[in-house]
Simulated scan of single mutants.
Amino acid sequence: MHPFKTFEGRVCPLDRTNVDTDQIIPKQFLKRVERKGFGSCLFYNWRFDEKGNKKKDFVLNKPEYAQSSILVARDNFGCGSSREHAPWALQDYGFRVIIAPSFADIFYNNCQKNGILAIRLDSPRVDELIRRGATEALALTVDLEQQKLSAPNFAEHFEIDPYQKEVLLKGLDEIAMTLTYEDEIVAYEKQHEAVVH
């Protein structure tokens, strides 16, 4: 994972509630186990018709959102099954940040474990970002250290679990984070071994 400190990206407004993981990455694409290559399958049933042609009315198919890296959606994003492929697909497509009023818990944790910053934000502020993202080229700056979102005429603080924040800032997965305590682990094991014997 790459360290996440300050990031600026174009907002893509996904004006939908209850976006489930089967819509994020449909089941027919779950046969692979590597994390790469899922971006082309993201929101497949919404992006493409039965013949594989792009649906012009879906937001990701509009040219102005082609380079978006911040997805803003409605309540209960990532509900449904616990498939980790959903954040893999979002990340492979190019999204580094997802903002919504609420997330399914397992999806939220899977995002943070895979280097995607998932931000819970009050519904009125999400409304504003979706509205502005639909009518202007809205670039948003995300400062994880300060836990701030900013854009012209927009500033908001967000909450994040301190451990998840540290993992994202350092760009470490859970195993790598555990290994940062290797000296303490070795010392404990030696002390425990001495007590047992």
Rank of each mutant, 00 (worst) to 15 (best):
S40M: 11
F77M: 02
F77E: 06
K55W: 05
P13S: 09
V72K: 11
Q23F: 09
K31F: 09
D20E: 05
N53F: 04
G37F: 14
F43E: 09
A73H: 00
P63R: 00
D49K: 10
E50A: 15
F58W: 03
V72Q: 05
V33F: 12
Y65Q: 04
L14T: 03
Q23P: 07
V59F: 03
D22N: 14
L42D: 02
G37R: 04
R32M: 11
G37A: 11
D15L: 10
V59R: 10
D22M: 06
F43A: 09
Q23T: 10
V33L: 15
E64W: 00
R74K: 14
I70V: 14
E34D: 15
D75N: 15
V72N: 02
N76F: 00
L60T: 10
I70K: 09
N76A: 11
K62A: 10
C41M: 02
S69C: 11
L60Q: 06
Y65S: 12
N53Y: 13
L60C: 04
N53C: 07
V33Q: 13
D57H: 14
P13K: 08
V72E: 02
K36F: 08
C41P: 10
G52T: 08
K55F: 05
L30H: 01
E64S: 09
Q67G: 12
S40Q: 15
G39E: 08
T17W: 09
G37E: 00
Q28W: 01
D49L: 06
Y44W: 13
E34C: 02
D75G: 02
Q28P: 09
E64A: 13
V59E: 09
K36R: 14
G78Q: 08
D20K: 03
S69G: 12
T17L: 10
G37K: 04
T17F: 07
L71F: 02
F48V: 04
F43D: 02
S40D: 13
E64C: 11
I25C: 08
K55E: 06
N76K: 08
K27E: 13
K31W: 08
F43P: 13
V33G: 05
F58A: 02
Q67E: 15
Q28L: 07
R16C: 09
N61F: 07
L42E: 04
I25Q: 00
S40G: 12
R35T: 13
Y65A: 01
P13L: 10
V19G: 00
F38W: 06
R16T: 01
